[in-house]
């Protein structure tokens, strides 16, 4: 049995009194590529914010390797948060910094490497995602697909144990989406990091997912859990079937 990386226990997410999802129970194992599925607005990004420790649960607990995220000290939580790499839905690159500076910023903040080494590392991370030659570009000067890849390079800056992606393939053409998937797979293979991906992109979730949950808007809770391919074959729930088989069966 693989080690548990994150455990979510009876989580209820709410904005003020408005409950988004409730009674979520699931485990994310080390080295898995864990997919979060669900319709628009069902609370996937909100779940990500909870897992990242950006938002406090209305009810329930989130454990990182048996440490309750909201029962430990602020400093310890910060440390856990720092070992998370995130690629946000919109890229969220800092627009006043060049790509190289975007990656160098966390390194400058949290390591005591020399400027020369930081530059080298920034260059290396950009090479990993195929953006060598664009170090001096500002985010506004590159295309959407390149922004996503630069966001990935920044997420990798601090050698994270766990990587979060919010809709990585949204707004990308199929070829670029495939390229990004391959990139995620090969980086996962070499780093052995745990990866959590929010996505609706069917080809990509079948290609990379090793475990998944499905959040439902109507019942406001998790209605299926398992590897995406198994879910397609064995899940009796019609909502999940409809979601997963769109354009395949009909």
């Amino acid at each position: 049995m693989k080690e548990v990386h994150i455990e979510v226990n009876n989580l209820t997410m709410a904005y003020d009194d408005f409950v988004i999802q409730q009674q979520l129970n699931f485990k994310i194992h080390k080295g898995d590529i864990f997919i979060v599925m669900g319709g628009n607005g069902c609370g996937k990004s909100t779940l990500l914010r909870h897992l990242l420790g950006l938002k406090k649960p209305a009810k329930g607990e989130i454990y990182y390797q048996n440490k309750n995220l909201w029962a430990i000290s602020e400093a310890e939580r910060k440390k856990i948060m720092r070992s998370n790499g995130v690629m946000y839905q919109s890229g969220a690159l800092w627009s006043s910094l060049t790509l190289a500076e975007n990656i160098a910023l966390p390194l400058k903040e949290y390591t005591d490497l020399s400027d020369h080494e930081i530059q080298g590392l920034a260059y290396f991370k950009l090479a990993l995602v195929g953006l060598v030659g664009f170090e001096e570009y500002y985010p506004s000067e590159i295309s959407g697909g390149m922004k996503k890849r630069a966001g990935l390079a920044r997420a990798l800056a601090l050698d994270p144990d766990i990587l979060f992606f919010d809709e990585p393939s949204a707004g990308l053409d199929p070829v670029s989406a495939k390229l990004l998937d391959d990139l995620i797979l090969s980086i996962q293979a070499s780093l052995g990091a745990t990866i959590v991906v929010v996505t609706h992109d069917l080809p990509s979730l079948f290609a990379i997912g090793t475990d998944a949950i499905f959040l439902d808007t109507m019942s406001k809770t998790l209605i299926a859990q398992g590897a995406p391919n198994d879910l397609l074959k064995n899940c009796p729930n019609p909502t999940v079937q409809q979601f997963l088989s769109r354009g395949m069966n009909e």
Partner: peptide, 15 residues
């Protein structure tokens, strides 16, 4: 990792 880093062509005239 090394293979990944040199997988993409380098854009020489880019910067």
């Amino acid at each position: 990792l090394l293979k990944q880093a040199s997988a993409f062509p380098v854009r020489e005239s880019g910067n």
